[in-house]
Design a protein around this nucleic acid. Sequence first.
DNA 1: AATGACAGTTTACATCTGTAGTCAATGAAA
DNA 2: TTTCATTGACTACAGATGTAAACTGTCATT
Lengths: 122, 122
Amino acid sequence: MTERISDAEHAVMEVLWKRAPMTATEVADQVVQQKDWSLQTVKTLLSRLAAKAVVGTERDGRRFLYSPLVERDAYLTGVSRNFVDRLFGGKVMPLVAHLAEADELSADDIREIEGLLRELKK
Amino acid sequence: MTERISDAEHAVMEVLWKRAPMTATEVADQVVQQKDWSLQTVKTLLSRLAAKAVVGTERDGRRFLYSPLVERDAYLTGVSRNFVDRLFGGKVMPLVAHLAEADELSADDIREIEGLLRELKK
DNA sequence: AATGACAGTTTACATCTGTAGTCAATGAAA
DNA sequence: TTTCATTGACTACAGATGTAAACTGTCATT
């Protein structure tokens, strides 16, 4: 199973998923636009991710270039699977139903999803 | 915003959401069918939930009766909202699309969801 | 050669979580 | 009334997490 990625780590991953490889400083520059973290914090998160082999490092002179080793897609699948399992008994229906009842779905959302499902049946 | 409920705590809540009020021992009896936890562990979790005011206590002689103070529905809405926000930019479409692409949706699922959406549009 | 600016590594530290063990009070049973 | 079982309260303790500061090695500059 894929290594667990914490919330804070996830923010770092999102940056790396957008562009990679990047140096720690580059990553931090991006992350800081979202989260009010220090450079050190971002470095720590990168190290932990590297230790878990969720990101890979490649030496570039005196510094490292970081790249994701786990694809965003695979990660999302795992997390979604887990989420739906734990909270909705593994069924997507109840989740969609719930979001719908909670008025989290706009008419546009509904149309979009219907279109998607129509595609899927082909 | 609703207090955060950890995974272990969530298992306890599921039991209380099914029936309440219940004593700690009753809750533990139910929980143990799912998780291999000791009575003490369940009691600790109940205490933590009570401390966070996620469950309420009512004295019954020498023991307590516990009941949820947060409704399952409200909880699910919050957690789902948060999940979709963090991972799918707040849009449900990408989530459904993702699950679909990851083959997490069966033909039956698709039909069911379509039925649901059709209802919603009325 | 001395100095300063980065980069990565190590250490820190409070809080949250998972998972109980122990203790003290109290009601039930003998 | 002595004893036992039950219940909540307090304590424990390791690992994960959020959030860094301090340390160390090494180029680039003076």
